Computed example of a mutant assay.
Amino acid sequence: MSRIGKKAVAIPAGVTASIENGTLSVKGPKGTLTLGLSDLIDYKVEGDEIQVNPANDGKQARSFWGMQRTLVSNLVEGVTEGFTKTLEISGVGYRAKAQGKTLKLELGFSHDVDLTVPEGLEVKTPDQTTVEISGIDKQAVGQFAAEIREFRKPEPYKGKGIKYRGEYVFRKEGKKK
Rank of each mutant, 00 (worst) to 15 (best):
S2M: 02
S2W: 06
G5F: 04
K7F: 04
V15Y: 05
E20L: 12
L24P: 10
G28T: 05
G28K: 04
K30A: 09
L33M: 13
L40P: 05
L40N: 15
I41K: 05
G47I: 09
D48S: 14
E49T: 05
I50P: 02
I50V: 08
I50Q: 02
I50K: 02
V52W: 00
P54G: 07
A55P: 11
K59R: 14
Q60W: 05
Q60L: 13
W65Y: 13
R69K: 15
N74S: 02
N74G: 00
T80E: 11
T84K: 14
G91T: 01
G91Q: 01
G93L: 08
Y94M: 13
R95W: 13
A96K: 04
Q99T: 10
Q99S: 13
L105V: 02
L107C: 02
G108Y: 04
G108R: 04
V113N: 07
V117A: 08
P118Y: 05
E119L: 00
G120D: 02
G120S: 07
E122P: 06
V123L: 07
K124E: 12
D127C: 05
T129W: 03
T130P: 01
V131K: 08
G135M: 05
I136D: 01
D137A: 10
D137P: 05
K138W: 03
A140V: 01
Q143A: 15
Q143I: 07
F144V: 06
F144Y: 14
E147S: 12
I148M: 09
F151H: 15
R152N: 10
K153T: 13
P154G: 11
P154K: 06
Y157D: 10
K158T: 15
I162A: 13
Y164G: 13
G166K: 13
Y168N: 15
E173W: 11
E173D: 12
G174L: 12
K176P: 00
